[in-house]
C-alpha cells in the first residue's frame, strides 16, 4: 500500500515475499507485500501473533534477506549490499529497540550508549558528550552510572532507546518496545518514540500490538497472514482491538 502524498520515502518494501523452511515444510510468511514508510513519523505495524510483522521489520531493517521483491532504505536497495556493507549501513543509519533491551550486565547506562559510538569511529570525548545528551533526552541523565541490575524495566528500555538514538540514525526500528513494561513506563516509551520522530525527523517503524502505541502512531499498517490488510493515518479503536495478539 503506497501513499502517493510524499514523493520519496526513506523506507519502501516492493512486492516482498519471504518463506521459512521448518523441517520439511515451507511456510509462507510474507506474500507480495508492499508498503512505504514516511519520514519523521511514528509508523506502526500491527497484527495478530504469527502474522509476519516481526519478519517484515527484520527485512525492512536489513536483518533478513528477501526471497522476492526489493527493500529500499534511504534510497539503497538492501539486496545489493554485502553482509559487511549491510552492517556498515546499519551502524551509520539505523537504530534498534528490542523487547528485551539487550543491555550488557557489566556496563553502566553511559557505557551502554557509548559502545556503538566507539564502533562508529567517534573519539572518546565526543562519544561521552553524545551519550550524555541521549541519556538526558530519555530522562536517564541522573541514572547514567548505574548498571542494568540497578535499573527498572522502564529505565532499561529508556537506556536502550538512548543507545539507539545516540547515533542519530535516520531509521529507528522498535520491536514490541512496550511489551515488557507496565502501563506508566509503556506510555513513557511511546511518548519518547513519538517525540524522537518529531524532533529529530527520524523515521520510526514500530511493531506492536499494544493499543497505547496504536493510538500514538501517525500511521498504522494492519497485517494479517503475511499481507497488509489496510493502512490508516489514525485507526478507529474497535477494529484494532480485534487484531491485537
Amino acid at each position: 500500500m503506497t501513499s502517493a502524498a510524499t514523493p520519496t520515502y526513506p523506507l519502501r518494501a516492493l512486492n516482498v515475499s519471504k518463506s521459512f523452511l521448518v523441517g520439511r515444510i515451507r511456510t509462507q510468511v510474507l506474500t507480495d507485500l508492499s508498503l512505504d514508510v514516511e519520514a519523521g513519523r511514528l509508523t506502526l505495524i500491527a497484527g495478530p501473533s504469527g502474522c509476519g510483522k516481526s519478519t517484515l521489520l527484520a527485512i525492512l531493517s536489513g536483518l533478513l534477506r528477501v526471497e522476492a521483491g526489493a527493500v529500499q532504505a534511504l534510497g539503497k536497495d538492501l539486496a545489493e549490499l554485502s553482509r559487511h556493507e549491510l552492517e556498515r549501513f546499519r551502524l551509520s543509519h539505523t537504530g534498534f529497540i528490542f523487547q528485551e533491551f539487550g543491555l550488557f550486565p557489566a556496563l553502566t547506562a553511559l557505557e551502554q550508549v557509548e559502545l556503538p559510538l566507539h564502533y562508529l569511529g567517534m573519539s572518546r570525548a565526543s562519544a561521552r558528550v553524545r551519550a550524555e545528551q541521549s541519556l538526558e533526552e530519555v530522562g536517564m541523565a541522573t541514572r547514567s552510572r548505574l548498571r542494568p541490575s540497578e535499573l527498572s524495566g522502564g529505565e532499561k528500555q529508556r537506556v536502550a532507546i538512548a543507545r539507539a538514538i545516540a547515533k542519530e540514525p535516520a531509521l529507528l526500528f522498535a520491536d514490541e518496545p512496550t511489551s515488557a513494561l507496565d502501563a506508566a513506563n509503556g506510555a513513557l516509551v511511546i511518548d519518547l518514540l513519538h517525540r524522537i520522530a518529531r524532533s529529530h525527523g527520524t523515521t520510526v517503524l514500530c511493531v506492536s500490538h499494544d493499543p497505547r502505541v496504536i493510538s500514538h502512531a501517525d500511521r498504522v499498517f494492519q497485517m494479517e497472514d503475511g499481507r497488509i490488510l489496510e493502512s490508516h493515518p489514525r485507526p478507529p479503536t474497535p477494529i484494532l482491538k480485534g487484531h491485537t495478539a
Binding site: 552492517e87 551509520s92 528485551e100 539487550g102 564502533y119 543507545r163
Partner: peptide
C-alpha cells in the same frame, strides 16, 4: 550467556569481526 547482547550490538551495526 551474552548471545542476546551480542546480537543486539550486531543489529546496531557492530560487525561480527568486531
Amino acid at each position: 550467556g551474552s548471545l542476546r547482547e551480542y546480537a543486539t550490538l550486531n543489529a546496531l551495526g557492530v560487525g561480527i569481526a568486531s
